[in-house]
Computed example of a mutant assay.
Amino acid sequence: MAGRYRGFVSTAVSTTLLAYLPSPDRGVWYLGPIPLRAYALCIIAGIVVAVYWGERRFVACGGEPGTVVDVAVFAVPFGLVGGRLYHVATDWPTYFGPGGNPLDALKIWQGGLGIWGAIALGAVGAWIGCRRRGVPLPFFADAVAPGILVAQAIGRLGNYFNQELYGGPTALPWGLEIYHRVDPATGLSDPLGGVALDPTPIAIVHPTFLYELIWNLLVAVFIVWADRRFRLGHGRVFALYVAGYTLGRFFIELMRTDPATRVFGDIRINVVVSALVFLGAVAYILIVRKPREELAPADDQQAGTDSAAADDDRPVSDGARDRTP
């Protein structure tokens, strides 16, 4: 009887311990004096995936190989700067309020990128790159849209390592354990750069970063299917990405409990922005009805260029000269 009781207790304890998702004990590792930050690595991995998949989709639609990489040279840095500016602007008390350090606004490696700033300023960089390559921006945006969603999903893993972007307390089996991190040298609290020395969680919360990660992947699959099924074009794939993402972000944002700028009384600013951007994206999808554009394959474009050049070099007949004004 006693052995059966001990077995029951052991099973119950094991079940309890395995019921929740543990957080990483740290988000930064050191290679000698060089810090390896999980957040930065996730952002880089997401960019690589977005460029690779975007390149494949772009070429499959007739685009010239290498174009996505060339445009990314402009779009990525513009997007990073825009994302940081949006984050700082919508969370300015953290940096410029009482107790804030304005220089921390430059520490992008510690987390804090607003997707709307990244998309807005990244689009400016993409427009510059597309003009240099002679590619329509809507065509380019449609090609890279699913990859951007996957990149966002990978970026959310960085929030997991940083123990940020989570919701309220929960007893659900997938609740996320949050640990107290400290600087091992001083023992002072250090949520981003510290280490969790005590494995006892200080809170068990909704992993809203995980909800958004899963939602992003589902929307990426959906827009790829919709693009193939309805042959969307002229920026409608990108608009569908924006509409799908903001739909999920609206509800996930309502679950978050981290500090945020509030507007219209007590509404998180990203809830309002998500609603407005969603309406704009849906309106674009409904208004634009042009058939899907296709770029000629690179070989055909080159052949056409060579043919035109050959025509220019061909001798002009006397009759043709007589008809020239």
Rank of each mutant, 00 (worst) to 15 (best):
F222Y: 06
T200H: 10
W174M: 14
L232V: 14
G168H: 01
P315R: 11
R256A: 13
P22H: 09
R6E: 04
G112I: 05
T67S: 13
A308R: 08
P315I: 10
T67A: 15
P98S: 07
H234P: 03
N159V: 08
R236V: 13
Q163T: 06
L286Y: 13
A141D: 07
A143G: 10
A203M: 07
V135I: 15
P173I: 06
Y52G: 01
D318I: 03
V73R: 04
G147C: 12
G3I: 07
G100P: 00
T246M: 06
N162M: 04
P173Q: 00
A171V: 09
V13H: 02
A72E: 03
R57M: 09
G168M: 02
E253P: 05
D306Q: 04
V73T: 10
D142E: 05
I178T: 08
G46R: 13
F78A: 09
I285C: 15
D142F: 04
G304T: 04
R4I: 04
A320N: 07
G248W: 07
A296C: 06
G319M: 04
A19W: 13
N101E: 00
G62Q: 05
G79N: 12
P259N: 03
E212F: 07
R181Q: 05
F264I: 10
R131W: 03
T257R: 02
P191L: 00
S23I: 12
V68I: 11
I204F: 04
S10D: 14
V195D: 00
G97A: 03
G187R: 00
P325T: 08
K107M: 08
V73C: 14
V124T: 08
Y241A: 15
T261K: 07
A185S: 09
G46N: 13
D306R: 10
A151C: 15
E64I: 09
D318M: 05
Y30N: 14
P22R: 08
E164P: 09
M255P: 00
N159A: 08
I108A: 09
L232P: 12
L113N: 04
R26E: 02
